[in-house]
């Protein structure tokens, strides 16, 4: 880990993706967003009925998967993690991993907690 490799000013830019890549990523991001909203609408309206029946049990996973791809695309290409080296990727991924684990842990803990102590839900 010595400083001999390159001066920081030159490290920027030349390894970065091109305009074409940026545009492709943008198009994929829009397509994925359209898929997300589409999945929501199919389940929401129950039509087409056959597709809705298939999609409904897995819609949460599908939506999370699609958003994870979008997230990764922005991070890799727009935030340049793909070309900017391991250290920055490590910092971001470690934080994200911990963030996800903590959200998951809280949900599991409270799920079991509330199984034993349900509150009145007047909405149902």
């Amino acid at each position: 880990m010595t400083a001999t490799a390159h001066a920081p000013a030159h490290a920027e830019g030349h390894a970065h993706p091109t305009w074409q890549t940026y545009t492709k990523v943008a198009l994929i991001l829009f397509a994925l967003t359209a898929l997300e909203v589409g999945a929501y609408e199919v389940v929401h309206r129950h039509s087409p009925a056959g597709f809705a029946a298939v999609l409904e049990p897995i819609v949460v996973e599908v939506l999370l998967f699609l958003s994870a791809i979008k997230f990764a695309l922005v991070a890799m290409f727009y935030m340049h993690l793909k070309s900017d080296g391991k250290l920055l990727t490590t910092i971001f991924s470690f934080s994200l991993l911990l963030a996800a684990v903590i959200i998951g842990a809280l949900m599991i803990i409270f799920y079991y907690l509330y199984q034993h102590a349900p509150t009145v839900n007047q909405l149902k």
Partner: peptide
């Protein structure tokens, strides 16, 4: 301008 990793 020196950094040990080359990252600003």
């Amino acid at each position: 301008h020196y950094t040990a990793t080359g990252i600003d």
